[in-house]
Design a protein around this nucleic acid. Structure first.
Lengths: 136, 136
DNA sequence: AATTGAAATGTTATGGTATAACATTTCAAT
DNA sequence: ATTGAAATGTTATACCATAACATTTCAATT
């Protein structure tokens, strides 16, 4: 039986597109952008690749945007929060260990067994806030 | 100019339906369920009511479910996390002040100005875990 | 009581997101 | 060469959400 995980051309192309953007990417935008490479591509093509990449921990789904972002800590731990800038739309991933620890303590206290977490913060990133400061 | 906020029949009916459920409710389910009361109702009818109720802080959108849940702390603070049980599908809202404080500290350190937060934890709630324990 | 203007609702249409179901192909292990 | 699971192709459809414009409601004003 084959046991190796296969990063096929389609999957790789989707991954490249996602990793090439610091903004979250939408499934149908991905579809448009892989069509030149994979003229046969249809929604299912993209969604299957996305499912695979998420399973492998190579990308994350951004629930509040219905979009996808490359994982900055691939292979490592899998607790992170996402900082989503309303201005530049860039998404930053942070491990935020203290937050996660506090959260874990809280869950334990409530006897809630967490399987997965979606922590998404919308606001203004430092790069977008800085220029405003300079306009004194 | 009218300044009072108006909880019209449609809005009230939608709110009642959402508050009557401990599970997150989908927009089109709401549509089906208000149709007996409001035969004219269409998707926009429901989505407008939902927008209003969210603005007023009476309900929350559950991003990871594309669904809506009543707010347990209406009118008060508005930092909360949602615990979503995979088994019974009930959603519990928690203020989790320690978590929020830790998160605020983290945001400050990163100079990220948070406007809104979506913190959704999927797992098994205490009520659903308990029965398993009893099956010794 | 009539006027008025904003808020709310009615209505039609469409766009965006995602998956089910079944057919076919690929590919590594045998 | 065979084979069987994984991947992909293909068609269809379901689900989620909003745009745009028409009409109605209703409280404040005249």
């Amino acid at each position: 039986m084959t046991r190796g995980v296969r990063l096929t051309p389609i999957r790789y192309q989707v991954l490249e597109l996602i990793w090439g953007s610091h903004k979250a990417v939408k499934a149908y935008d991905l579809l448009d952008r892989i069509k030149p490479l994979q003229p046969m591509a249809k929604p299912a093509t993209v969604y299957r690749a996305l499912d695979f990449l998420i399973e492998q921990g190579l990308i994350h789904r951004v629930e509040s945007l219905n979009a996808f972002i490359g994982c900055s800590y691939s292979g490592q731990q899998h607790e992170q929060l996402l900082l989503i800038c309303k201005l530049c739309h860039e998404v930053e991933e942070r491990a935020a260990e203290k937050v996660m620890k506090t959260l874990a303590r809280e869950m334990k206290q409530l006897a809630f067994v967490a399987h997965s977490k979606s922590i998404e913060i919308h606001g203004i990133c430092i790069k977008c806030a800085q220029p405003m400061v300079n306009q004194t």
